[in-house]
């Protein structure tokens, strides 16, 4: 077989491999096993989650934030609308932390029913606005948490 034909076959095979792999990832339910965090509903539905380090994501439930600035701890509840998990964090919350914002925490659910964490990560939405007196409606900031 001459070189030119061989090269073209290589190109087509490479394209087929790439397209096949992409199709597999896009249309298989790989996402089921590829989970970055659980929502409160998903966390509470599992009986094997207790005492294991996992990530929990959802909205900071308004009215539940209790920040002890002396002891440098903060507790609040994470909610996904249908279920809610109380969270206790060693350390101060990050700058963007506030009521209604989307957060992801790393830690473990302990037998006392409280999710213990030392790391709060704050999500932000895909909206970029200028400050205009009134602040962004915090409910919009967790809109991207709804998917998946």
């Amino acid at each position: 077989m001459n070189e030119a034909v061989k090269r073209r076959i290589f190109a087509l095979v490479a394209l087929a491999v790439a397209a096949g792999a992409l199709g597999t990832i896009a249309f298989s339910d790989m996402g089921e096993d590829l989970v970055y965090y659980w929502s409160p509903t998903e966390l509470l539905a599992r009986d094997d989650a207790m005492n294991h380090t996992v990530r929990l994501g959802g909205q900071v439930e308004p009215g539940t934030i209790d920040w002890d600035k002396e002891a440098q701890t903060v507790s609040f509840s994470i909610s996904d609308g249908s279920a809610s998990v109380p969270v206790s964090c060693k350390g101060n919350p990050p700058q963007m932390f506030r009521e209604g914002i989307g957060v992801v925490v790393e830690g473990e659910l302990q037998p006392d029913g409280v999710f213990h964490t030392e790391k709060i990560m704050v999500k932000h939405s895909n909206e970029y606005k200028a400050p205009e007196g009134t602040e962004t409606d915090p409910r919009k900031l967790y809109s991207t948490l709804d998917q998946g």
């Binding site: 896009a26 996402g31 932000h124």
Partner: peptide
């Protein structure tokens, strides 16, 4: 960011 729930927000 569309296929899987992630920390990174979706495209603006």
């Amino acid at each position: 960011v569309r296929w899987w729930a992630s920390m990174h927000q979706q495209q603006s």
